[in-house]
Design a protein around this nucleic acid. Structure first.
Lengths: 195, 195, 195, 195
DNA sequence: ACCTAAGCGAGACGGTACGTCGCGTCTTACA
DNA sequence: TGTAAGACGCGACGTACCGTCTCGCTTAGGT
């Protein structure tokens, strides 16, 4: 059993709050450990005691929902195509608002050196619970969907689109999410719509 | 007419060669101007005289083909689906070899702070001349293709896939490129397969 | 009457032993409270509870004879010149052996910030009981000595010599103590040597 | 021949001026490299580029006379005893004024870890040119002096006295220097004063 | 036989300073 | 005038200790 004083929850919270605020205000690259410490009213050593690097702090802030704080869970109404489309629309609209694209871009850059961050971003975007791949797989098994692409490929295509939008800072065009998801998943619709 | 010594081509070449070698070896983030200068046997001022920032050097190195040096031009055999599939396979195989994924990841991170780099990466990947979007548009206009997705959307999906592969460092699975491109473009196949 | 646990003698002894060993090994300046605590297997608070500063620990270690542990009492054979000479020789030989000069140098440096340490060093060197000054005064009063220097000046000269030797790390030259003390005290010799 | 910019004399002067002012104001121990850099308006690296340690800066400040700035050259009037006595009086009076004892104490403590500083203090105190030892030797050779002590011993005794006075912060008693030097050197006087 | 106030080991905390690295600008001597 | 070399002011890095503070445990009077 560990002896000595326990980790200070106040310090931990202050660090995460400060890092979130700083990333949001000045961008990931311009955030410094010293800046976090100063903003949080905390000694540098307290940061280094618990986090090996700046990206580890970011990763924890992501887990705690202090960055990308919205609820991005994929809905479950029984219609997988509509569910995923709704979720994608939510994500793309989020990116198009405020400077959220810049934030996600920062985080993508960070995740290049820190796989942990990549993982946490995925989880934050609702890919932590039942991912797109799993949802698609279920629907396919139930005969509700048929696609020449594997569930994992569909997953990659959709996440890829999100990244492209983050990096490109494009506006959201009405109906886009539905159209993309429809094209990737809803082959029956197209088949049925034929005379 | 300017007097004095002209810009030293030797210095310029040494800078680009060094930066390419360094990015390849240690990744974009760990490359420093001082490191480039030392490796190139060049004064720091000589670098700052010609390039405003590290990313500008990277951009020029990309243009000169000293990074991502392969030929990624999209072939033109008359069959757009096969052409794009062949090109995508080439790109994905390239990423799967050596530490090219790491290299491209580095460059993606760099492009977050420097749109210029993003542009040059695209050009390097063969998206400089007739892009995928344009090729798809031509084929659609000629009636060879019909897709519910716009050419730009297809372009983004494919580039997104490439980025995902770079960031994820996945191996290349045989036939994958053809399958992806087929699913995204070759709607006639599915239509034709109906009675 | 106080309740609760009493001061731990084991902890106190461990602290003093550790500080003595550390000062001897790395010198006063390089000794840290954390180092002492670690070496003694003691909590930092236990040190701060009993000692206000590093120098207070050193002072107590000196009092306990854990530093400069030899017996430096000035002998008393009835011949003050011989007594003081014998004592000085003992001190100078001690300094010339092992790294005792370094140790005393450390302590002198420490005494600059802490008069307490200076006092304890004096006491340790046998200047605690009847000091040189007092011994000289007695002898002078008894008519055994005559010197143009006051007893206090003689004391300062001799202690000064000891400090110089400590700082200079010189070897001991046979007979030196006798010669110095003789020159400072034994004016009769010089008087007698005259025709 | 070295290329590149030469060492900045302005920076060097600012560093030495700042260190002198700081040592004088807060004492050697409380002087920090960061403090010097800040006071001098200089980057820390500029200090570390030229000085391996705080004590090296002090040593140079001593050489430049920015600490112990008085002229302590031993006069040469032809009467060595009077010369040395005059010099010693000057030194002891200097120590007794302002907080010069504290300053010299600091420097003595510093010299424990840095022989360089010890050397520079000696030189500053006029022991750099013809030292006391040399002066005594000359006088002895010329038959002007006769002492049972060697010139080096006399030197050590006198410097030892100075150190004791610095550490003890005693006031200066009128005539003390003359008396000490007389007792150590002027054996003829005493001999002559005998009946 | 309990209670409870102290001492204890461990170690987290807010700080200050350390010595190093890289930035972007500048100065120097050479070609 | 361009260049290699490199000094400059600056800001951040990650580390070492400071002196204070909490932990959970042990110890030993007082009731």
């Amino acid at each position: 059993m560990p002896r000595g004083a326990a980790r200070s929850e106040a310090a931990r919270a202050a660090i995460l709050a400060s890092v979130a605020s700083l990333v949001d205000r000045v961008g990931y690259d311009a955030v410094t450990i010293e800046g976090i410490a100063a903003a949080a009213g905390v000694g540098k050593q307290t940061i280094y005691r618990w986090y090996p690097s700046k990206s580890a702090i970011i990763a924890e802030a992501l887990v705690e929902g202090r960055l990308l704080g919205e609820d991005f869970t994929i809905p479950d109404t029984g219609d997988p195509v509509a569910d995923i489309a709704a979720w994608l629309e939510h994500v793309l609209r989020f990116l198009a608002s405020r400077n959220h694209s810049a934030l996600l871009s920062s985080l993508i850059a960070a995740s290049v050196d820190s796989p942990e961050i990549g993982l946490r971003i995925s989880q934050r975007l609702g890919l932590g619970g039942p991912t797109i791949a799993e949802r698609v797989r279920q629907a396919t098994d139930a005969g509700e969907l048929a696609s020449p692409l594997s569930p994992d490929q569909i997953d990659q295509l959709i996440v890829g689109i999100i990244m492209m939008r983050a990096l490109g800072r494009n506006p959201y065009v009405e109906g886009e999410a539905r159209q993309l998801v429809g094209a990737l998943l809803d082959s029956s619709t197209r088949a049925d719509s034929r005379p």
